[in-house]
């Protein structure tokens, strides 16, 4: 049995096949030039949706990393200020120890008062540290200068206008970190303003003790300063610990992003060798199809009739 294959049907089929090859070549060309494995949504709907999901996850992690960096910046600034306080406190304690020397004259003790006063001013400046326009030791009242000398009374010597609010930032889907230490905690300690754990009170007491050569008062101030020094060191340690945690978190998120990007890449990025191979193969098919069409259409019985 023979099947009739009139010329139009052969041409129709060849044209269809040729168009398909051209369609594939165009898609492959687009992929090769863009580097994307998916040239249109309909080519891989699931892959396209997954790419969106992966990209959103990566972006979310990046934004958490960014938050962690910001939190680290604030914590680092707080730690720097607290460390400066701690350094100055060591000097205060040295001055107190000198003041306790019974061989020292009253005049010599009084000479140290101006340095203690300068250090107390320095404490005040550090307690009013601003980062990006916000007072970092003001709790959540960040636009108000938190510490100022008490103009109404001698006790406490410095008053606090901030609050005990904690500012936290989300650094992961279910993790947040406090980015501040309320100034009252850092400078006043557990006893509060004017208490034995008040840094400014201790400095003021030392000043008064040195000024009046009151060794008992100097001794008390020295004792309080040691306690407060421990209290500031605890805060510094806490700030350092939080930063270390953030560093670990950023590393983990970064590593997670690398994994996510690798999976995203498997959907999104072109496999150049296989696509170029397919492109060359389709080019060969196209040339063969064109050649065959040209030859077949030249042949029929009329060519041989005279």
């Amino acid at each position: 049995m023979t099947i009739r294959t009139p010329n139009p049907s052969a041409n129709r089929q060849s044209l269809l096949d040729l168009n398909r090859i051209k369609e594939r070549l165009a898609a492959e060309q687009k992929k090769i030039s863009s580097g994307n494995a998916i040239s249109r949504l309909g080519e891989d709907p699931t892959g396209s949706a997954l790419i969106v999901d992966f990209r959103a996850s990566v972006d979310r992690n990046n934004s958490y990393i960014s938050q962690a960096k910001t939190a680290g910046y604030f914590l680092s600034s707080s730690e720097t200020a607290a460390s400066s306080m701690e350094t100055s406190m060591v000097r205060l304690m040295e001055l107190a120890q000198n003041g306790l020397n019974s061989n020292l004259t009253s005049t010599a003790r009084a000479a140290a008062v101006s340095e203690v006063s300068a250090i107390r001013d320095r404490f005040l400046d550090l307690a009013n540290t601003q980062v990006q326009g916000k007072y970092i030791f003001a709790g959540t009242n960040t636009t108000t200068k938190p510490f100022s000398y008490n103009t109404l009374s001698t006790t406490p010597p410095v008053v606090y206008s901030g609050n005990s609010g904690v500012i936290s930032l989300d650094v992961a889907a279910s993790a947040s970190v406090a980015t501040n230490v309320p100034g009252s905690t850092l400078c006043f300690g557990s006893g509060g303003a004017g208490s034995s754990t008040d840094l400014f009170q201790a400095a003021t007491d030392l000043m008064n003790g040195l000024s009046s050569s009151n060794l008992t008062q100097i001794q008390t101030a020295y004792g309080n300063l040691r306690t407060i020094h421990d209290q500031v060191n605890t805060v510094i340690t806490d700030l350092g610990g939080r930063q270390a945690g953030l560093t670990t978190l950023q590393e983990n998120l970064g590593a997670y992003n690398i994994s996510l990007k690798a999976i995203q890449s498997s959907y999104e990025d072109l496999d150049y060798p296989s696509t170029i191979t397919q492109f060359v193969s389709d080019q060969t098919s196209q040339q063969a199809a064109l050649s065959v069409m040209a030859k077949v259409n030249n042949q029929n019985l009329f060519n041989f009739l005279t």
Binding site: L41, G42, E43, D44, P45, T46, S48, A49, V52, A56
Partner: peptide
């Protein structure tokens, strides 16, 4: 942060892509 809006977007993209396919 739960990704619900991203899921809605990817669902829409998947729907359009699936229809196109």
């Amino acid at each position: 942060s739960s990704g619900q809006f991203t899921t809605q977007v990817s669902s829409l993209i998947n729907g359009i892509g699936t229809d196109a396919q």
